[in-house]
């Protein structure tokens, strides 16, 4: 059985948890006490990941760290339709990779702000918040134009990709770090679309949305 070294309140661990659920992959969660125990930095955990980070997965002896790398692996291994990580279309694939890189930015700003506020990390909170707003402005405009083209997701495909999963937690939890989404109406609509995907699971801080009256068949 696939194992995910996980912490419930971590935005980065939520990413693989979400995709595992959406792909319906059976798995075991191995809780790592990130806060306050800092178990991810313990000698025992460094044997699994010398960098002392979560998440990490272990799949039949194969160990992989870093949230976005794990998303790419899971989509490649467990999505026979090849829509979550669309290797058949080089331009689309390039777009997905570019948004994964963008999500490193949201993790370093929006999610870092949340680490300051909720978990006592001593980053420059003001810089994190300002950086997150810069990125959210770009993403909101991008998603607004996607809507104008009749498309729902971050990458220009009919189906969601790992880029949506990589961005969702940083965006959906941003207000815990003091980053309001009032100025980003397209971003607010996109998070609701992600939440309505089959297999979506929430985490503390992600509030449920209303089901649509006539769910698309």
């Amino acid at each position: 059985m696939l194992r995910l070294y996980d912490y419930l309140l971590s935005a980065n661990c939520y990413k693989p948890r979400l995709l595992l659920s959406m792909l319906d992959v059976p798995h075991d969660l191995v809780p790592v006490e990130f806060y306050p125990g800092r178990e991810h930095e313990s000698a025992a955990f460094r044997k699994i990941n010398p960098l002392g980070h979560i998440p990490v997965i272990e799949d039949d002896g194969f160990i992989l760290r870093d949230a976005h790398a794990i998303l790419v692996y899971l989509a490649g291994e467990y999505d026979p339709a090849r829509t979550w990580y669309p290797t058949a279309d080089p331009r689309l694939l390039g777009g997905v990779a570019s948004w994964l890189q963008f999500a490193e930015g949201t993790a370093d700003t929006a999610s870092a702000a949340r680490l300051c506020v909720n978990f006592g990390y001593e980053f420059d909170l003001e810089a994190c918040v300002a950086g997150a707003h810069r990125l959210f402005r770009v993403l909101d405009e991008h998603l607004w134009f996607r809507e104008q083209e009749g498309l729902d997701w971050v990458a220009p495909a009919a189906a969601p990709t790992v880029a949506d999963i990589a961005l969702f937690p940083d965006v959906a939890l941003s207000e815990e770090g003091g980053i309001s989404r009032e100025d980003y109406p397209s971003l607010r609509r996109w998070t609701e679309r992600v939440q309505r995907l089959p297999g979506f699971i929430d985490m503390p801080g992600v509030l449920p949305v209303a089901p649509l009256p006539y769910p698309p068949t």
């Binding site: 009032e182 607010r188 609701e192 209303a210």
Partner: peptide, 8 residues
């Protein structure tokens, strides 16, 4: 949008 709440 249907079943959405806008924040303003």
């Amino acid at each position: 949008m249907p079943r959405h709440v806008v924040r303003s």
